[in-house]
Design a binder for these strands. Structure first.
Lengths: 161, 161
DNA sequence: ATATATGCAAAGGGTTTGCACTCCC
DNA sequence: GGGAGTGCAAACCCTTTGCATATAT
């Protein structure tokens, strides 16, 4: 939840306009789900969005969150992130970018598109079809998980139980 | 199923050795599941592996395939591919490589590691944690899907139903 | 006013697990 | 012979769907 206020509002106004133009009603629930996903850069899953929204709309149901996120995705306003297994995660950052993924805890952070500029379509890929986008996944162990691992190791060395 | 005979055999001997060393028993079922995944470069899901193996071992159960693929993955002999939604898919190619992914039909094809050589770890990623690997996902529409789309378009232009 | 959206509950698909029987080591 | 592996069925999680009620337009 560290998207700037300006970015949040710009996303929300885009969301409202696109939903209205698509003939979707701007219900209280939808607006709050939109606010929740637009305001997060943690690539939350449905459950996380649900929990966040419920603080403001305690009566909202989980399937409304599913339906709303599905609608936003169909409109191209958010994207599903591809991660191994588990629950679907969503990304409201529409700028071209890449991801750092922690293989331990599943943390996903954006890397600006500039990090890998000018990636070309290799011959092998061009032969397979029409390329639409090129994304880089940088996988590793985030600093938090590393610290956890280090504490473990220290305990082992000290012979603690 | 277009892995060369030599590659298939080399993978299978590695699988057998690693499983034996891990103390896993080399059962008929496990060997056939191993053969199936080692022989495919289509990144099959569990169901596809199950169907393939069942032609040779008609009595094998789906959960044995799940358990065997899980065991092979834990040993680092195969990798789960990350794709959006749906069933888990596995990859027996242990060489560093990238993927072309069809956004229409889910086709996944390997791109040799040489296609993106010398990708560096950007500052932003280095600050997030210890990087282990960098993989590129080239997304697009495969030629088969394109042809299907073209046939549709032609029919529309001709006003056919 | 009316059609769309919601909430609830039930169904659905993929995956995992508990258990008795089988079979590799 | 003994313990790990198998097959079966039930349970599990995430997600979708059918339906009556509520609500945005």
């Amino acid at each position: 939840m560290s998207v700037s206020q300006g970015e949040l509002e710009s996303r929300l106004s885009l969301f409202s306009r696109a939903m209205r133009e698509a003939g979707l009603r701007l219900t209280h629930q939808r607006l709050e789900v939109a606010r929740e996903i637009a305001g997060s850069d943690l690539h939350p899953n449905v459950e996380a969005v649900y929990c966040g929204v419920r603080e403001r709309v305690p009566t909202i149901s989980l399937d409304t969150v599913y339906r709303t996120l599905g609608a936003l995705e169909r409109l191209g306003l958010i994207n599903e992130v591809d991660v191994i297994g588990g629950a679907a995660r969503y990304d409201a950052n529409l700028e071209h970018h890449h991801h750092f993924i922690c293989t331990r805890c599943g943390l996903i952070r954006d890397l600006p598109g500039a990090a890998y500029e000018g990636l070309e379509v290799p011959e092998t890929a061009a032969n397979l079809g029409e390329v639409e986008s090129i994304n880089v996944q940088v996988r590793g162990v985030c600093t938090e998980c590393q610290e956890r691992i280090n504490i473990w190791k220290e305990r082992e060395e000290n012979g603690d139980e």
